[in-house]
């Protein structure tokens, strides 16, 4: 009995240690960000006079406004299309059971393991031939393609588990395939769709290599993460501002995460296990 209580106690201590370890980089960024401009903060140290205005200065120095807008535009361009076409494909594979569906799913599965570095070089030349380099489209279009394997798999997993009798009943009521999809199945798939929206939003926001390569000069058309490299130069010799800027870049997605943490964690775990 006492040993199990000790285990429970030990478990709680370990949990706290693990939480501290996870938060360590954020704490370090945060304390660094509050140091006076022109100092070189070391380790974890709370400044004597916290400089909250550093966050405002960091925003202005790196001109974060346009990049925040650009990130939002890239998310708006990527996520809705990804979700719509992945839901359609998932419906076709999971409910309609199209001919050759297994082979198609296998084709998508290959993409689940594919590292982005494996295709980044031809992507550059492809988008160059479309005359899209240095535009937001150069990030949006490849991202939609890159999200397909996970998104289609995710939506198919949902549709496979929806009883087909529902579709059949609607069908016997004379509904067209599109009506069944849009009027019946999509509303039922809402939880799965919401999870997919959250995940792809976060993945889009954090994308680094794509904007680095495909938006080479027009930094204002990148994602937040992609623009971070350029910020390093803006803040060049100012560690507190760089720390504040990094936190500002993280903030929107952390906020989204905190609001939707339940869906996000569940989706990540399920998506991983199913995938």
């Amino acid at each position: 009995m006492s040993s199990s209580r000790a285990t429970a106690y030990g478990g709680r201590v370990m949990l706290v240690v693990l939480m501290f370890w996870t938060l360590l980089p954020f704490i370090s960024l945060f304390t660094a960000a509050l140091h006076p401009v022109g100092t070189f903060p070391t380790g974890l140290s709370w400044p004597a006079h916290p400089q909250w205005q550093n966050f405002i200065n960091a925003w202005n120095v790196a001109n974060l406004g346009p990049i925040l807008k650009s990130s939002a535009l890239i998310v708006l361009g990527t996520v809705p299309i990804t979700v719509v076409i992945a839901t359609m494909a998932g419906f076709a594979l999971g409910q309609l059971r199209v001919f050759g569906g297994r082979a198609v799913m296998l084709l998508f599965l290959i993409g689940l393991t594919l590292p982005l570095e494996g295709i980044i070089i031809p992507l550059y030349y492809e988008l160059n031939s479309f005359n899209l380099i240095d535009t937001r489209m150069a990030v949006i279009l490849p991202l939609i393609g890159l999200f397909m394997p996970f998104s289609v798999y995710w939506m198919r997993a949902h549709f496979v588990n929806v009883p087909r009798s529902l579709t059949e009943a609607a069908r016997s009521d004379g509904a067209t395939t599109w009506q069944i999809f849009w009027g019946l199945q999509v509303p039922l798939a809402r939880p799965a769709i919401i999870s997919l929206v959250i995940i792809t939003t976060i993945w889009t926001w954090n994308q680094f290599l794509l904007p680095l390569v495909l938006v080479p000069t027009n930094v204002d058309s990148r994602t937040m993460a992609g623009a971070l490299g350029a910020f390093q130069g803006q803040y060049s010799d100012n560690i507190p501002l760089l720390a504040a800027g990094s936190l500002l870049i993280l903030a929107p997605m952390v906020l989204v995460y905190i609001i939707f943490q339940r869906q996000f964690i569940r989706a990540m775990l399920q998506g991983a296990v199913k995938g």
Binding site: L212, T217, N218, G233
Partner: peptide
Amino acid sequence: INTNAYAEITTNAPLVLAGKNAP
């Protein structure tokens, strides 16, 4: 004007100059 880290300019210059929107 676009500004970028020198490292990225070094990397990108040939492609940017050869590209369709050369500065």
